[in-house]
Design a protein around this nucleic acid. Structure first.
Lengths: 189, 189
DNA sequence: CGTTTTCGTTAACATTTATCAATAAATAAC
DNA sequence: GTTATTTATTGATAAATGTTAACGAAAACG
């Protein structure tokens, strides 16, 4: 159940001790989501960082009744409505399972406790923040690309597997265009 | 010289000890940039996180010979080409002084040393990552707003002081439109 | 299986935004 | 202060993208 996150933890924090790992393991919880289930909704406070064991999650805004996808997260990666998690403020986004998922969750409170009890755990917290920064940074770069075609190409290069698993109209919203326009871009090739 | 960053450090890490602060202070360097000077160029490896004591810095890409601004950083805030800093990869962006600046710099190497010698310092490293995440997250939200007008309004609401200090054509590139278009948006009001 | 719903494609048309060019205004340099 | 340079505005036109609607394909469901 916790093998994947343990492996990941070890790569993030090579200085891992059995003691610190056991302390974390005790505080992890497992959650199963069916396709279409929400982990949080806009307005909720996001109190966890989630490690995706299996499945596919997404984050999205709702603007004028339209969905705007901002992230798709697959196996062995972390996801959170992290701004809400960090600031304890209501989430601006929804977090939903696009496929049946198994999540391994660590709560804000438990994370704070781990920081206090095991300073080495701070490294883990920092690595997660850094990881989520780099992920967001990549998305930012995509968004800044001049044309929709460049943005789509970027996604094809960086995350080809996503194109297979995520409905096209969600990809379109991710790169900031309509599904119709993406369809035209694809067929122009 | 280091009073501002010390104050900031204290707010980030209330558990500060004199010892850890002194250790950090010894490793800080001060740098003065004239308006128009570059801190790093694309392709350089960014080896520092910079605290802006005075002045105004920006980050920007160069795409097809055109500048695309991604951040404007003012006094008492941190700036870095952070993706390069974290991964030790060549920077994708330029970092330039838009006004004469005084920077207080902390190098990657010194930061790693501090992590090792003073575990409490990990908190500082994590807080910086979290701060830069939240900054980027805000920029992301702006970029995701549907219309350029909404993006401009968002910036007006969130960073009104920037509009005064940053040339309008840079604001335009920040929100992803041409200077001409931004001029029209402003005059429609 | 057959049925229903969701998703992707295509076309005509409307709207938004970029481009190009000219000028005015503001700022910097001498 | 005067001149040179950069920045902002405005208009005409072109290009890109969105909207609406219809239809076919694929997937989900019973």
């Amino acid at each position: 159940m916790f093998q994947q996150i343990k492996t990941y933890y070890k790569t993030l924090v090579p200085a891992i001790t059995d003691e610190s790992w056991n302390a974390m393991e005790e505080r992890l919880t497992v959650q199963h989501l069916k396709k279409g289930d929400f982990f949080i909704r806009k307005g909720d406070i996001c109190r966890h960082v989630c490690f995706v064991n299996t499945g596919l999650m997404r984050l999205f805004y709702l603007e004028d009744g339209k969905e705007i996808c901002t992230a798709f997260i697959t196996e062995n990666k972390f996801i959170s409505e992290y701004a809400s998690f960090l600031t304890n403020a209501p989430a601006a986004q929804y977090m939903e399972a696009l496929e049946d998922c198994e999540l391994v969750n660590l709560s804000f409170t438990n994370m704070q406790n781990l920081y206090k009890q095991y300073p080495v755990f701070e490294i883990f917290g920092r690595k997660i923040a850094e990881y989520l920064y780099l992920l967001l940074s990549k998305h930012n770069t995509i968004l800044r690309a001049h044309t929709p075609e460049q943005r789509y190409q970027f996604l094809l290069d960086e995350e080809p597997q996503l194109i297979q698993r995520v409905p096209q109209y969600m990809i379109a919203s991710f790169i900031g265009i309509t599904p119709e326009h993406l369809s035209r871009i694809r067929n122009k090739r």
